[in-house]
Design a protein around this nucleic acid. Structure first.
Lengths: 207, 207
DNA sequence: GACAACATACCAACCAGTTGGTATGCTATA
DNA sequence: TATAGCATACCAACTGGTTGGTATGTTGTC
């Protein structure tokens, strides 16, 4: 049936280009011509696959969700048996992938939502879905860890899962401001230490 | 002598406009005409005071530093006698000011650096200075609190001070993505809880 | 020959920055 | 103190290049 041999189609190339270019220059500063040049296609191809630049941004956010979803779903940190170990292995993994150029490890949707939250609701919502659905994958592990330790707290698994994303997004901003990943790595360490304290102190009822 | 009573000069009006417009639309999407319209001045005035759009962005970041520096320097949280209390009061204050529109409480330099870290080093550096100098104002309190509790840790006062800024910047991103401040407030609570645990557990040497 | 997947050529609106000018105030000196 | 000389602050109109988007092909495949 479908042989599709060497041909990676223009749509896929444009989405790849969108990840690279938008993470480097931001959404507004990225022009349609930039994307076409990076993808090696023409404007005709662009507007054949996307009805507007905004439409591409939404598709890019969804593509980002799928890509990162795959990356984390198949990452080795899931192999740990105990939920708390999976949480710490997740954070170790997040720290490990702070490699290469800033644009290679920072978050597409975190970048885009800063520019579009007020002006492009469709993009904002796509970014929100991407972030919250990733956080949701952590929620189950946190919930099980809470049960395992018998933790009755005034915080929820969901809020802690979202807090991990807050720390990561903030870490990317400081990394961009300082031109390096060192502060980001330190912040992930602080987050790990926080979760360790939540799960190892004898103050569970005070949490 | 000088009567000109109502006249606030164009430069000040443009900087005020820059805070409002850039925080709403982002740096790249903000046009010089947008800023002139918001400030009620002409383009001639703009380029009389700033040699380029980028030059205005640097000036806006510096203006932001001065404004927020004043705000925090005169905030009531400094009145607490003990350094740990000042830290917690700082966080309470950060939570209190999560009011109004998103653009009213989010951070100008955190927004700008996302778009410019790779393409405009002067803006990026101005943003870095703004963030790190604010973090430095917390460092002394953290250091004194560490001394007070006799904490010998594998983290530094500086890294914890920067971590607070990481959490705040990340909180703003999640707030923009979700369209509300609730998650931001939750994250500040998690940060407060973390610092409480650092300063109240009996595990000081394990920190 | 119908249709999807592109390419080419083009456009109107918009963009940062420039130009030439005016209004106003400051300063030095006669 | 009158005023020439000059600087600052601002304005309206313009410019050349860029932008997102369109209109109209061309080509390969079922």
């Amino acid at each position: 049936m479908s042989e599709m041999p060497v041909k990676r189609d223009a749509r896929a190339k444009l989405l790849d280009a969108a990840l690279a270019v938008i993470r480097t220059k931001g959404y507004s500063a990225t022009t349609v011509d930039d994307l076409c040049a990076a993808a090696g296609v023409t404007k005709g191809a662009f507007f054949h696959h996307f009805k507007s630049k905004e439409d591409l941004a939404v598709a890019a956010a969804e593509f980002w969700s799928v890509m990162t979803g795959d990356l984390f779903a198949h990452a080795p940190y899931h192999q740990h048996d105990k939920p708390p170990d999976r949480i710490f292995a997740y954070l170790a993994f997040r720290k490990e992938i702070l490699q290469g150029n800033l644009a290679e490890f920072t978050c597409l949707v975190g970048t885009m939502v800063q520019e579009t939250f007020e002006t492009a609701p469709d993009i904002r919502d796509a970014c929100r879905r991407s972030i919250t659905s990733h956080a949701a994958t952590l929620e189950a592990d946190i919930e099980q860890a809470m049960a395992e330790f018998g933790i009755i707290a005034d915080w929820t698994a969901k809020s802690l899962a979202l807090h991990t994303q807050v720390v990561l997004q903030g870490a990317f901003i400081l990394a961009k401001a300082t031109g390096g990943a060192a502060i980001a790595a330190d912040s992930i360490d602080h987050l790990r230490r926080y979760i360790e304290l939540l799960f190892t102190t004898t103050h569970q009822k005070l949490n």
